[in-house]
Design a binder for these strands. Structure first.
Length: 729
DNA sequence: GCAATTTACTTTTTT
DNA sequence: AGTAAATTGC
């Protein structure tokens, strides 16, 4: 291990091992290397690896870091506690489960599972989901949990019309998860905190164990994570957090940027080390990124610089529409690959929303460029996969009612809604799990004999295999169970494209399980379920693969590529706006900044003048972020407009009719994005009868152009623009 | 109780 | 446009 390869700030960050340290690490400043070296340095100075806790943002980051440390210090590295907050504490909770009245085979509910629980509660409590959106309730509950607010204090912290109802749901939600022996993502952070707060012995045990704590991506930790770190580090106070406030992009998930801004206040006598030299990008790229981010008001002062070459200018592409954007980029990639200078995996296409990936996929296929979409519809969230997982969960956790409900009638066993209600009612009365309830139901007369038989068949299936858990090889057990359910057979026989897909997905899951067990025979079914609950798509992605990477800007955090395309730089998309409420533009700007700083050699940002959304073409305006870029480092390119025509359009949409009549004679691209008085989402309009309002949605073309207008009086109207004479204000 | 048809909703970003 | 949920008809 040679510390001389580090610059002086980096070296400080490695050797200041005692006491609280904040490392403000700008993009590309070698933060991963610093963390790696710091851990290796600790160990080479005699610290037991088992006394080090390193928390990363993704499992992938943890794996990579562990690999690098292994290179530096060898096998000792395996004894490190390293992983995401969620995976490290999920493991801890399996050890300590009995102390919080759970079992070590508790289920982990993802957001879908948790939403189903909430819907179930609202259904039981007769709260209509028109009245209260379950997703809203879910986000409120998650929000409260992130802030460590218990149901009893809920109403002191949230102020809206429905809070007392939400509080009731929150209370019941907690109860149900508890009786299901299940935890959601938030619980994985909260439950250890609750344990530590009530059981000082447990806290002391882990304080002693984790003498040195390191946290990566600290800018994206939430309050619960902060509280946890505070508790664990309060003994030795050897806590080192690394982060960059300019790259905080998870506020929507509860991340609290104050954690990093206030670190020096929260942890007294802490040191700050700034890593300001960027080793990743060219001067042009860094200057562009800097010109954007400096528009944000709230930040830690820092000055990122680089010794790297000036490099090529950053290209701003102006495209006709989203299709043109995709083709344009494919062409650029093809040309660059032909020069032999770059291979496919040197390129990344980064977008704001997953929905944007499709159009690039189509274009890449046509261009025969290998690509891989990272993220999107996640494998483990597919219906067929969740069904299989529900079976497995029920085997190890018989209290998991949510999983039971999912599969009790899948494949069809003749158990309908009415029979299920009877089972739920009986189980609730006797305060037993639904699975146990089946036995009770069998001894009652609330359902027909035929239904009883159907239930018992299911019950026997589950019991048969849960008794085999631990006795039979995991792989054999699962294959045999799935075979007996007939799921695979069912999909195979149906034969539609969709069902073949599902069949293959389940096969893939079973193969994944086989690999999991083969690579480590001591692993159990619970381990497998735990792993797949906490794994993300980015964790599975191998950058060794020779393919262009497509992913969201969020997923790209922490990665780097020689050539980066940040696409869809249009107002409303990047920055993304939901309705026209005041959004946090600063966070969107940071997201754009994160995207730009992923590039090592070449950066391309593009926007389309028209974009398809929900199957309709909408005019777009270039992102305000593009106007913030320092022009000295930019070159502009655009698709030739020679065959496209601009329209002179008057203020009123009554003239729109003329335009639509001559539409057939018009070229393919209708460009009204640069016109002055244009109707777009957000435009203020005047209606003779309804008064002033704001356009919320646009659809259709020509005579069929329709708008949803929200009038200031509170009315929301769907209007045909052909008839409604709207004036643009 | 189930299949077929209609409707509603999606596009934030994810552990 | 494409999918999931809800509703209807058998």
């Amino acid at each position: 291990m040679n510390l001389n390869t580090l610059n002086s700030a980096q070296r400080n960050a490695v050797i200041e091992t005692e006491g609280p340290v904040l490392v403000v690490a700008g993009a590309g400043s070698g933060k991963t290397m610093v963390l790696t070296y710091r851990i290796a340095y600790l160990i080479s100075n005699g610290v037991d690896p088992a006394n080090i806790l390193a928390l990363t943002f993704t499992n992938k980051a943890a794996e990579e870091m562990k690999e690098r440390i292994r290179h530096l210090i060898g096998k000792k590295a395996d004894r490190l506690s390293m992983g995401t907050f969620h995976s490290v504490f999920a493991k801890l909770l399996r050890f300590e489960a009995s102390h919080i009245n759970f079992t070590s085979s508790y289920s982990i509910y993802d957001t879908d599972d948790s939403l189903r629980v909430i819907k179930g509660i609202m259904n039981d409590f007769d709260i209509s989901d028109n009245f209260l959106n379950p997703k809203f309730v879910q986000s409120r509950i998650s929000n409260a949990k992130n802030k460590l607010i218990k149901p009893e204090y809920y109403e002191n912290n949230f102020f809206g019309i429905h809070e007392s109802k939400i509080k009731t749901i929150y209370e019941e939600y907690r109860k149900r998860l508890k009786s299901n022996n299940s935890m959601d993502f938030d619980d994985l952070l909260i439950k250890p905190i609750e344990l530590f707060e009530k059981d000082n012995g447990a806290l002391l045990k882990y304080q002693k164990r984790y003498k040195y704590i390191l946290v990566d991506e600290y800018q994206d930790t939430n309050h619960a994570q902060y509280r946890m770190l505070k508790l664990l580090s309060s003994g030795f106070e050897n806590i080192c957090v690394v982060g960059d406030d300019a790259q905080s992009i998870y506020k929507w998930r509860g991340a609290d940027i104050r954690n990093i801004l206030d670190f020096t206040k929260d942890f007294s006598s802490s040191k700050i080390i700034r890593l300001e030299q960027n080793y990743r990008s060219t001067k042009s790229i860094l200057s562009v990124a800097d010109s954007i981010i400096k528009r944000n008001v709230h930040q830690i002062e820092k000055n990122l610089w680089t010794d790297n070459e000036e490099g090529n200018k950053v290209t701003v592409y102006e495209c006709l529409d989203d299709k043109d954007e995709a083709n344009h980029i494919c062409k650029a990639i093809t040309i660059k690959m032909m020069s032999q200078e770059f291979k496919a995996s040197d390129f990344a296409i980064l977008y704001r929303t997953n929905a944007q990936s499709r159009i690039f996929e189509e274009a890449l296929i046509k261009s025969t460029i290998p690509y891989v979409v990272v993220g999107g519809t996640e494998f483990y969230k597919r219906k067929e996969i969740k069904d299989v997982i529900a079976y497995l969960r029920l085997l190890v956790n018989p209290d998991d009612n949510e999983s039971l409900l999912r599969i009790v009638n899948f494949p069809s066993r003749g158990i309908g809604e009415v029979s299920l209600e009877a089972l739920k009612k009986l189980s609730q009365q006797n305060e037993i799990s639904l699975l146990k309830g089946i036995q009770a139901l069998n001894n009652s007369d609330s359902v027909t004999e035929r239904v009883k038989k159907n239930f018992i068949n299911f019950f026997n299936l589950v019991m048969k295999y849960s008794e085999l858990v631990g006795k039979l090889n995991v792989n054999e057990l699962v294959r045999s169970l799935i075979d007996e359910t007939g799921i695979l057979k069912m999909y195979k026989e149906e034969g539609s494209e969709d069902s073949i897909n599902r069949y293959e997905n389940i096969s893939q899951l079973l193969n994944g399980l086989q690999d999991f067990v083969n690579s480590n025979p001591t692993k159990t079914l619970v381990d497998f379920l735990n792993d797949i609950a906490l794994i993300s798509e980015i964790d599975k992605w191998e950058d060794k693969s020779t393919a262009v990477a497509l992913m969201t800007l969020h997923s790209a955090k922490g990665l780097e590529f020689k050539n980066v395309f940040v696409v869809g730089c249009e107002d409303g998309l990047l920055p993304l706006s939901r309705d026209s409420s005041v959004d946090d533009v600063e966070e969107e700007r940071r997201l754009f900044y994160v995207g730009c700083t992923r590039a090592k050699k070449n950066l391309y940002v593009s926007f389309a003048r028209n974009r398809n959304r929900f199957g309709n073409l909408y005019p777009q305006r270039r992102s305000r972020f593009l106007d913030e870029i320092d022009e000295r480092f930019v070159e502009h390119e655009s698709t030739s407009f020679s065959h496209a025509v601009s329209f002179r359009k008057k203020a009123s949409y009554t003239q729109k009719k003329d335009f639509s009549k001559s539409r057939n004679a018009m070229p393919k691209y209708e460009d009204f994005s640069q016109e002055e008085k244009v109707l777009t989402v957000g435009t203020r309009v005047m209606h003779d009868v309804f008064g002033e309002g704001t356009i919320r949605q646009l659809s259709g073309f020509g005579d069929n152009l329709k708008a949803v207008v929200e009038f200031d009086e509170g009315l929301r109207k769907h209007l045909m623009l052909k008839f409604a004479k709207l004036k643009v204000l």
